[in-house]
């Protein structure tokens, strides 16, 4: 049975203002004491607690930089909490940063295979799914072409087709509700609805409050990494919109 439990989770990033520290900086600048590029601590999540069980559909909302995507990545196991407890059981499918991770020299068909393996599929299961994924992507003969010749839209279509071909127990979605062109978007929405109906737990991050209201029954409003409100989705959206309107008026 799928479940997600977060207890008083904190996540702190230690970052430098400049992209990387060089060995010269490390060795010569007093071992960081007089660094011109000091480490800054960014509290991405503070004291977040969650308990999701089968049947829960959680919508996460908040402004830019509130920690929504970070929370999703923490649930997916990509980030580990700096403090607190994270317990997730169940097969996770994460739909975020879909366009990343393509092997540009490989064909679309080859990319389907290894992205499928990346999601935990086997050669046997991929043999069954390959044609279905190819058909859903509508890329036809382009599937035998290296993906470096694809447009951005074609890449998203291919990524979406692969990512949604599995049946997860836990589905984590970050703003992928508008994949591809208009015709594909309708198909993608149908696919998402089917997938969401099958998944035991869903966590959706979106700025589209109507979509969240339609897809989710619970809401979580994050602000600067902290939970501002949690509860029935309508109440959380109402609290968030009134906060945004109050700020706009001020």
């Amino acid at each position: 049975m799928a479940s997600i439990l977060l207890e008083h989770v904190h996540l702190t990033f230690r970052v430098r203002q400049q992209y990387q520290i060089t060995l010269k900086e490390y060795l010569l600048r007093g071992m960081f004491r007089n660094s011109r590029n000091p480490i800054r601590e960014i509290h991405a999540l503070r004291d977040v607690s969650l308990d999701l069980r089968p049947g829960d559909r959680l919508g996460v909302l908040g402004g830019n930089g509130a920690g929504k995507s970070t929370l999703l990545k923490l649930l997916a196991g990509i980030y580990e909490p700096s403090r607190g407890i994270r317990r997730v059981s169940g097969r996770i499918s994460s739909l975020f940063e879909l366009s990343l991770g393509f092997e540009m020299e490989a064909s679309g068909r080859q990319n389907i295979l290894y992205r499928g393996y990346l999601q935990g599929e086997t050669p046997r299961s991929m043999r069954k799914k390959l044609d279905e994924i190819a058909a859903f992507s509508e890329l036809g003969e382009f599937l035998d072409t290296p993906v470096r010749y694809y447009s951005a839209g074609m890449l998203v279509r291919l990524a979406f087709s692969i990512a949604t071909a599995i049946e997860p127990e836990i589905l984590l979605v970050d703003e992928v509700l508008s994949a591809g062109d208009l015709a594909f978007q309708e198909k993608a929405r149908r696919r998402m609805r089917e997938m969401m109906a099958k998944a035991q737990i869903i966590v959706v991050v979106s700025h589209d409050l109507d979509s969240l209201r339609r897809l989710c029954d619970r809401g979580l409003w994050l602000d600067q990494g902290q939970v501002r409100a949690e509860g029935p989705i309508d109440q959380v959206i109402a609290a968030y919109t009134s906060h945004v309107e109050a700020r706009r008026a001020a």
Binding site: A76, G77, S94, F96, E97, L100, G101, F102, L118, Q119
Partner: peptide, 9 residues
């Protein structure tokens, strides 16, 4: 990096 950012392998 693209894989590490997408999946916890």
């Amino acid at each position: 990096e693209p894989y590490i950012r997408q999946h916890a392998l």
